[in-house]
Design a binder for these strands. Structure first.
Lengths: 127, 127
DNA sequence: GCGATATTGATATCTTGTTATCAGTAACGC
DNA sequence: GCGTTACTGATAACAAGATATCAATATCGC
């Protein structure tokens, strides 16, 4: 039978607190604040089971490692900061994307990724 | 001094003929039709130099290997077929994406990826 | 509290995409 | 046509992300 462990709670909590998609390594850092000593293997294991049970969903963006976010967040897209490499959730979605599909193509999904600088990096001018 | 070789021409030709972003392996297949015996290492080498001189640009999409397309094709996006995994170019672009960026965020680029079935796979029902 | 066993942490291993190595080949200025 | 040397093909090596291994530990029904 599945057991509730401090490690699983820490992973879930790290994702909830962040409110944005995190890489396994970012999750590790967040979870270590709650459970010192937690290892990356455990993070991957927990993410795998949470993805399987649907409580967490993978977020794949161009050219970077898979991130994870809590499920049931509604349709949304992402903003990828070029300064800190963090990914943020953005509400809203361009209407009528189907008109861009070539004739005869069947559209069943889409992904929009915005690039630029988050409020912190825009001010700091870093990166 | 740089030399023109049949291999370089074959890689370029494969990209031009396809008219869509190709993976290094797809390029290899296309180039082998022109130059039997061409190897994957050469494809990578040629792509690297063409990317460096700007005649070819890398196309990174979520969850798949980097593809390459000829440069100077103007602003466009891509359609990723779930059936054959081929990626097609799509013209057009949703207007006013800046309104989706959170307050204080500076937008300097975007990527739109459409998913579904290309005309061939839509008819075949395969995948 | 006890015991069965699911889970963990450290690390080795695997996978996929890409690059380096190196001897043999071919492009091109002459 | 020749010679120099950039280029090629086969394959070993790398890199990064993810998974497997295994002894030690912690959870939870009793």
């Amino acid at each position: 039978m599945e057991r509730n462990t401090r490690q699983k709670s820490a992973v879930r909590e790290a994702l909830v607190v962040a409110g944005r998609p995190l890489t396994p390594f970012e999750i590790l850092e967040g979870a270590q604040a709650l459970v010192p000593g937690i290892g990356i293997a455990t993070v991957y294991r927990v993410l795998k089971s949470m993805t399987a049970d649907g409580s967490v969903v993978p977020v794949e963006l161009p050219g970077s490692a898979t991130r994870y976010e809590t499920a049931h967040r509604g349709h949304h897209h992402h903003f990828h900061c070029r300064g800190c490499e963090r990914v943020y959730e953005v509400a809203g979605c361009p209407p009528d994307l189907a008109r861009f599909a070539p004739p005869g193509f069947v559209l069943d999904g889409h992904e929009v990724v915005l690039y630029g600088r988050c409020s912190t990096c825009a001010v700091a001018g870093e990166g």
